[in-house]
């Protein structure tokens, strides 16, 4: 037992080192004062960050990513919340809704991109950030928002709602004064996770965004054009934004679940 425990620790050390090595390499290279991406390290500079964010195109891509991320996180979470609350009240619809919610998850990314491309092309929907990329993002975000919210909503103590109703609250009041306040941390965490799901999305976006760009699409185009040594810096910016937002969501939901598990006396 002892020996196998030590082996597992050693294995975990290797695993985590390999997991973080590429991220470390990316960060180191983003500061490397060399004309080409790669080793050795020739000096430290922050100019690649200035280069990566220079030009209206990148700032516009960043703006697009932030706005489509916020909008699809909001709508995706709202739809997921309504669905999860609805299924809690009438479980007989689960058999229909759960498979429907799984469709975007099991559809491979490239196929999802192609589906939206062909669909929009055939019904005459113009390609663009809000016309086609936004629906694609909401469709992608919705199942993840649901899977994040669903366990929390199932755990919700029915006695709370029954008590409120016994005290004369109407269904709408129960929702706004009891259910939503209890769910608030879970909802905030879901919005934050959903934002990163949208912010990181690439392949579904690439096919339908037309002439517009999000940050990952901008990075992809820079990679295809071998645009220059600023690429690692651009990667670090994209990575930091989504990691920070997701970490915030993790701490909010972890904190909330730790609190709700404490014995109430």
């Amino acid at each position: 037992m002892r020996a196998s425990g030590k082996l597992l620790w050693a294995y975990a050390a290797c695993f985590y080192s390999l997991l973080y090595l590429p991220i470390l390499v990316l960060i180191v290279l983003s500061f490397n004062d060399a004309p080409a991406i790669g080793f050795p390290i020739q000096g430290l500079t922050t100019r690649w960050y200035a280069d990566a964010l220079a030009g209206g195109q990148v700032m516009q891509a960043l703006g697009n990513s932030l706005s489509i991320g916020i909008a699809s996180a909001a709508l995706g979470t709202l739809l997921a919340l309504a669905t999860a609350l609805g299924l809690r009240r009438s479980p007989r619809w689960r058999g229909v809704m759960l498979p429907l919610l799984l469709v975007p998850i099991i559809t491979p990314g490239i196929v999802s991109g192609v589906l939206m491309l062909v669909f929009a092309g055939m019904i005459g929907l113009p390609y663009g950030l809000w016309t086609t990329a936004f629906p694609a993002h909401v469709t992608w975000v919705l199942p993840f928002a649901f899977l994040t919210l669903h366990p929390r909503i199932e755990q919700l103590d029915r006695a709370l709602e029954e008590a409120a109703m016994d005290l004369g609250a109407r269904p709408r009041q129960v929702l706004s004064h009891v259910v939503l306040p209890v769910l608030q941390p879970a909802l905030i965490a879901t919005v934050l996770f959903s934002f990163t799901v949208s912010f990181d999305e690439f392949v579904r976006t690439l096919f339908v965004i037309g002439g517009a760009r999000t940050m990952p699409v901008q990075l992809w185009i820079s990679l295809q054009q071998h645009a220059g040594p600023f690429i690692p810096a651009m990667g670090v910016v994209i990575m930091l934004i989504s990691m920070l937002v997701a970490a915030l969501g993790f701490f909010i939901s972890h904190h909330a679940s730790a609190r709700s598990l404490q014995p109430q006396s």
Binding site: P22, I23, V25, L26, T196, F199, D200, F202, P216, L219, W220, L223, I231, G235, I238, M239, S242, M243, A246, A247
Partner: peptide, 11 residues
Amino acid sequence: WSSYLVRSFTW
């Protein structure tokens, strides 16, 4: 929690 595009590219 970060883009798979970035994580693929780092290799």
